[in-house]
Simulated assay, not measured.
Amino acid sequence: MVNDKELGYGVKALTGINMDSKFRDGIIDELFKIKGVREISEVTGRFDIIVTMYAQNLSEMHKLISEGIGRIQGVLASESFIEMKRRTKTMPYNHST
């Protein structure tokens, strides 16, 4: 388990992206070049992909989203959700034989 705050990442965002499917592979490649992008998930629903990003502060997150995601060819629209508070559930480890 990574402790993001210990690594200096104080802000987490989930960004939903709608894209032109002709540019899918290029968009994903470009997203992974952005510092702070940790995970990209192809999803069902309102967005085509959800990007999990980390930054040191809100100013850096703004730059990652506006200058990073905003410049990628084929991105039609995006909406970002800044994590305000996290609560986790501890799941028991169940090893099946």
Rank of each mutant, 00 (worst) to 15 (best):
42 E>H: 13
42 E>W: 04
28 I>Y: 11
68 G>P: 03
64 L>G: 00
17 I>D: 02
36 G>C: 08
59 S>Q: 08
25 D>F: 06
71 R>G: 01
45 G>I: 10
21 S>D: 15
39 E>Y: 03
37 V>A: 12
70 G>W: 01
53 M>R: 11
55 A>F: 04
69 I>V: 10
68 G>S: 07
25 D>Q: 12
70 G>P: 00
15 T>K: 13
24 R>H: 08
50 I>Y: 13
13 A>I: 05
60 E>Q: 14
25 D>W: 07
57 N>R: 01
69 I>C: 02
59 S>E: 15
48 D>N: 12
44 T>N: 11
54 Y>V: 12
38 R>D: 10
54 Y>H: 12
63 K>Y: 10
14 L>E: 06
13 A>V: 03
49 I>T: 15
27 I>D: 08
40 I>D: 02
36 G>Y: 07
52 T>C: 01
19 M>P: 13
70 G>A: 03
19 M>I: 14
24 R>P: 00
43 V>M: 09
67 E>H: 10
51 V>Q: 04
39 E>M: 04
31 L>T: 07
23 F>W: 12
22 K>R: 15
44 T>C: 08
42 E>G: 07
40 I>M: 02
28 I>G: 10
52 T>N: 09
69 I>T: 03
58 L>N: 15
51 V>E: 03
49 I>A: 13
53 M>A: 13
69 I>K: 03
38 R>Q: 14
68 G>H: 09
35 K>Y: 07
14 L>G: 06
46 R>E: 14
31 L>C: 12
32 F>D: 07
66 S>A: 04
58 L>W: 04
36 G>P: 02
45 G>F: 01
68 G>W: 04
39 E>H: 06
50 I>L: 15
44 T>A: 14
21 S>W: 15
61 M>A: 11
36 G>S: 03
31 L>W: 05
13 A>H: 02
60 E>P: 01
63 K>H: 05
41 S>A: 11
21 S>G: 00
56 Q>N: 13
15 T>Q: 06
52 T>K: 15
65 I>E: 00
64 L>Q: 11
15 T>G: 03
33 K>W: 00
54 Y>T: 05
